[in-house]
Design a binder for these strands. Structure first.
Lengths: 187, 187
DNA sequence: CGCCTCGTTGATTGTACTCAATGGGAGTGG
DNA sequence: CCACTCCCATTGAGTACAATCAACGAGGCG
């Protein structure tokens, strides 16, 4: 079930729309952001992927989004058609897709919130679940712009809200991109 | 591949969270809305389903959303585990899930738009694709509140935008819930 | 008729967007 | 080492747009 694998540097593009060759890219380690690009240059982040997640499920058709490494990452390429031949493999793939669907729906729910704070609270929790966290410690290897593109806000609003949270000790920057979630967020 | 089937009246609940029995509900005819309910009573519409769509993919685990008929609908129950045993069946299911994922991502994109008009324009197109349309004629068997819950707006904003569109002949109400999309929307 | 749900329209307010300027850190080259 | 640049982040001021609160209208049904 393991196939070829490749390593990607931070900020490197793993694939772009239109590329698909029957192999399914599965993230072994690192973190990846999936997004689409509009004509006007705006980006919409579709998903975050952590170790174990598939980056797309297109066996043959054209993928319609970009994948970019948020940190040094390793990607394995699983032969898709072979996976489907096997009953256990098919069940595994269905389970993976169901998990993705559930994540997308949490993302949908996030975007339905009308206030910036509600959205960002949901974002931090979702990112923690997608990318992994150590208790109340979370890594957010995203730029403010990427967080904005994930939450449907502007980078300024994201910046202001995080600043407010730091003042209120809801979220504390430990160092770099690692934060400590306060009681209000840890739930 | 066909199993039992059941008919549901308009506004009837097809299933609620927590119910799942290994059979996959597939919509034969009609239209269905999938949504979640928050503690505060707010609803978030997750998806619209038309003929041929599965209403969930949970073989055993608990479903986490509601399904409600938007019009008289018929639902077939496909034995899920049996479907997975078969190679063609598994491929079919994977394809269905991939389509759902694509729809959810369009929905995500819709919710990332900041203006009410952009969101509702994307909504009308998405609903047309999900529920079917006859050229520029589209049926929107949703209440204003349901459209609001789909787009993350309020029912007042939806009402105002539709009124504006009727004045500008962007969207014309033919009768009841059937509308005619103008050039601006037909794209 | 009275009741209820759904939809429309109006007036006001608040929040996040927009435009704009400044600050800070990483990397490069003299 | 310092000057320079570039990118990302922060902060400020003003504004626009949708949310909110509220009243009213239209249709369906017992």
């Amino acid at each position: 079930m393991t196939g070829d694998s490749r390593r990607f540097a931070k900020r490197e593009t793993i694939f772009a729309p239109g590329e698909a060759d029957g192999d399914l890219p599965k993230l072994i380690s690192g973190a990846v952001i999936l997004y689409t690009l509009f004509e006007d240059g705006r980006r919409q982040v579709l998903d975050l992927a952590g170790p174990g997640d598939f980056l797309h499920f297109d066996l043959e058709g054209a993928v319609d989004h970009y994948a970019e490494a948020l940190m040094p990452s390793e990607v394995a390429y699983i032969p898709g058609p072979a996976l489907l031949q096997d009953t256990d493999g098919a069940a595994f793939m269905v389970e993976q897709m169901r998990d993705r669907l559930a994540i997308e729906r949490r993302h949908l729910t996030l975007l339905s919130y009308k206030s910036a704070m509600d959205r960002l609270e949901a974002f931090v929790k979702l990112a923690a679940d997608c990318l992994g966290h150590d208790g109340a410690r979370v890594d957010l290897p995203l730029t403010r712009q990427q967080i904005a593109d994930f939450t449907g806000l502007t980078l300024e609003t994201v910046s202001r809200t995080f600043a407010q949270w730091e003042r209120d000790a809801v979220l504390t920057k430990i160092e770099g991109q690692t934060y400590l979630m306060g009681a209000a967020l840890a739930a």
